[in-house]
C-alpha cells in the first residue's frame, strides 16, 4: 500500500494551522509551519515525502508567492496552492498564469474544494 500523502501548510496564525490540520489530517499527514522560513526548512527536511504545499499569502518577511518561488527552487515537482484571506490580486494572477501556483483558495476555506484539488493531484 502507498504511504499516506504528506502536505505542508504554511500560515503565520497558529489558529489557522490548528484548524487546517484538524480539517485535513484524515487520511493525510499534515506538516505545519508558522513562517515561510520554517516552511522552507520543513520542505528541505521532508522533500522526499511532501506531495503538496499550501501557503497563506500575507505573512511577515515573505508573502505566499515569494515563498512558493523559494520553495520551487528546492522542490519543483509538486503542486503549490495559496490560501488567503485577501482578494485575488495582480501578484496572484501572475503566479497563476505562470503556473507557479495551481489554484488560489480564499478563507474561510471550503474543505471540500481543497480536498478535491488535493485528491486530484495527490492521488
Amino acid at each position: 500500500m502507498k504511504d499516506r500523502p504528506v502536505i505542508l501548510y504554511v500560515d503565520d496564525e497558529e489558529t489557522n494551522l490548528l484548524l487546517f490540520r484538524m480539517a485535513f489530517e484524515n487520511g493525510r499527514e499534515v506538516l505545519l509551519a508558522n513562517s515561510p522560513n520554517e516552511g522552507l526548512i520543513k520542505l528541505t527536511e521532508n522533500r522526499e515525502r511532501i506531495t503538496a504545499v499550501i501557503s497563506d499569502m500575507h505573512m511577515p518577511k515573505m508573502n505566499g508567492v515569494q515563498f512558493v518561488n523559494e520553495a520551487r527552487k528546492e522542490l519543483n515537482t509538486i503542486p503549490y496552492f495559496i490560501l488567503s484571506g485577501y482578494f485575488y490580486d495582480d501578484e496572484i494572477d501572475l503566479a497563476l498564469k505562470e503556473k507557479k501556483i495551481l489554484k488560489f483558495f480564499t478563507k474561510p476555506f471550503d474543505k471540500a474544494e481543497i480536498e478535491g484539488y488535493l485528491n486530484e493531484t495527490n492521488s
Binding site: E13, T15, N16, L19, F20, M22, A23, H58, S84, G85, Y86, F87, T106, K107, P108, F109, K111
Partner: peptide
C-alpha cells in the same frame, strides 16, 4: 475593503472550521 476582508476572513475561518470540527 481588502484590509477589512483579511481581518474578517481569518476569524471567519476560525469560526467556520472550528464549528465544523
Amino acid at each position: 475593503s481588502a484590509g477589512v476582508a483579511h481581518e474578517i476572513n481569518n476569524p471567519l475561518n476560525f469560526i467556520q472550521n472550528g464549528v465544523e470540527a
